[in-house]
Nucleic acid binder design. Structure first.
Lengths: 337, 337
DNA sequence: CTGTTAGCGCCTTCAA
DNA sequence: TTGAAGGCGCTAACAG
């Protein structure tokens, strides 16, 4: 049984004043005689009075709450994004209401409505992968609720977003591989239709172009390819790939396995760079070089954008790409090697 | 600028009736002429009316919101707990308000107050590791807000909890090692003062006892020991350990490294079992056997307890230990080996 | 069947 | 300096 919390009127009655007076005394706003103010404040403290934010919300039409929609929390990446967001919002005194979309558009739509119904002051969202409908997003914008997209965006949505700079991330990785002398660099692409897949592939190509290395089709594989394993084997063995850049760290592990099978040593004969800096990367042998996307910073930055937009609705439409960091570990030869 | 949402009174005015009538029509409760009901419903739909839950909260003194306090989200374990909780609460139509304690008691206290202020209908919490003060927890209970502890509990707190059965988990692992014929089983303990460390150690000892194997002090190490690496080397080399059970998967990886260094083959000469079933376990070579704690189920179960308690304040004080699952992978010899 | 009244807890005029 | 009144959006009790 939930106990009744003590309210402003309880204090007022006890002190034979009106609720208005108590309110003024507690909020410092109006003028209250110093004596009464002290009386009220001390009684409030004694009784453990805590204002009811719900009543205030009703009045002020704001909830001090931010809604968050993420596809899932299980991947390290999103849990770091969440941590970054949480650190900023809690610092700013906002609550965080979370929803999961499970990469399912219907759930995303449902979550959006839930958050809108809850009258959150703003929404942070990672739209699900296969997003073809945007009415729910439009609805958010129509409602005047500030919205910031995280990690993924769509050109059809005119709202601030914070994404990772996949192009640069991929470029920096492949550029490094070229610099240490790799000539035959394998790339395993990610899932189709994802802008990240596309951008990382672009970064790969651009780095090769910079170093005047031709892009060989046989060295570019698709992670969804049922014959992926055989093809990797072919690239490592017959094509003598001396470098590999993969869409994810997990794909890099596949390369590890096949390299071991083919007795190809990493990094002496093959330098490998993955993507995402999964915690695993430091635990496998040799430790994996990878591209860190700074997900915590991404979350924090998007939360800051949102808070700005909430507090100043005229704030400019910001959009940014968070820089990636190339993390070099044992899986790559050294620059001077 | 947040747009004014359309309210029950807007509809009432447009239709020349009173808000009460609209309320009744929409909630099906009282009697309203079928004609008016249809009019009202259709206008509400047309205008995109959605009830304001804040107003309802104020009235009903419930928010349909559950508060969650976790130490952090970054570890796979907690992100799975969170996922489990989320799946249950969202299914039940509750919102989830989340706070982080960062294993810091002051932050935990602050979060607790925040949630209490927010008038959540119930709280799920993993109390921080070093917990010596329980006033804030007591305050939650005094307030009548249902509380369920997750993953960790204290005997000083009389409230339902859901924790993992560390004893059984450890027992099952070491029992298996004994069954496949290991005689010298190394154990690396977790951080001091943690009940999980203690319970897993107990499980280890009990399994040895069952198989009439003596517990050798030299084979029990502490993860915090600065000389841990040397000691492991001594156990594997000089003491010819043929089995290892570690407090965490990460500690198991340390064993992997040293076994490789000492040219000890896993699983032929040494069988290893970790704890937690980190995603990494399936990516290292050989894949790691481990104890899965079913964190998702743990989260789901605790959320269910909480919902029960919310809906029936007289519900019995439930407490349970979630069963663990021994996951056998390549790092252990087979039973018939 | 429908309107009136009152109130959830708080704050903000407006009067006194 | 303080009190009274009104209202945020909604519902419930009571009239009519």
């Amino acid at each position: 049984m939930k106990k009744k919390r003590i309210s402003i009127t309880d204090i007022a009655q006890a002190l034979q004043v009106t609720p208005s007076t108590v309110s003024r005394a507690l909020n410092g706003g109006g003028k209250v005689s110093e004596k009464k103010r002290q009386e009220i404040i001390s009684l409030a403290k004694k009784l453990g009075y805590r204002p009811n934010p719900i009543a205030k919300s009703l009045l002020e039409n704001r909830t001090n709450t931010i809604g968050l929609i993420l596809p899932e929390f299980t991947h390290h990446f999103y849990s770091r994004v969440l941590a970054g967001i949480e650190s900023v919002t809690s610092q700013a005194g906002y609550q965080l209401l979370i929803c999961t979309s499970n990469e399912n558009q219907n759930q995303e739509i449902k979550s959006t409505l839930t958050l809108l119904d809850a009258r959150v002051d703003g929404i942070l969202a990672t739209i699900s992968k296969m997003n073809d409908k945007f009415e729910h997003i439009q609805e958010v914008m129509d409602s005047g609720t500030p919205l910031v997209l995280v990690d993924r965006f769509s050109e059809e949505i005119e709202t601030p977003y914070v994404i990772s700079d996949d192009f640069k991330g991929a470029f920096s990785a492949v550029d490094y591989l070229c610099q240490i002398g790799c000539k035959n660099i394998l790339h395993i692409k990610g899932p189709d239709n994802l802008s990240t897949t596309f951008n990382r592939f672009m970064g790969y190509k651009e780095a090769l172009r910079k170093h005047e290395i031709e892009v060989k089709e046989e060295l570019v594989l698709e992670s969804s390819d049922p014959k992926l394993v055989e093809k990797i084997r072919f690239c490592l063995g017959d094509l003598h790939a001396d470098g590999a850049f993969t869409y994810s760290d997990y794909l890099a592990f596949e390369i590890y396995k096949l390299a071991a099978e083919l007795k190809i040593t990493i990094p002496e004969e093959l330098s490998v760079i993955g993507y995402a800096d999964e915690p695993i990367s430091t635990y496998i042998n040799p430790t994996l070089s990878t591209v860190n996307q700074q997900p915590f910073e991404m979350g924090a930055m998007s939360a800051n954008y949102l808070l700005n937009k909430i507090n100043d609705s005229a704030s400019p439409l910001e959009a940014s790409r968070v820089d990636t960091k190339l993390i070099l570990r044992e899986s790559c030869r050294k620059m001077d090697g």
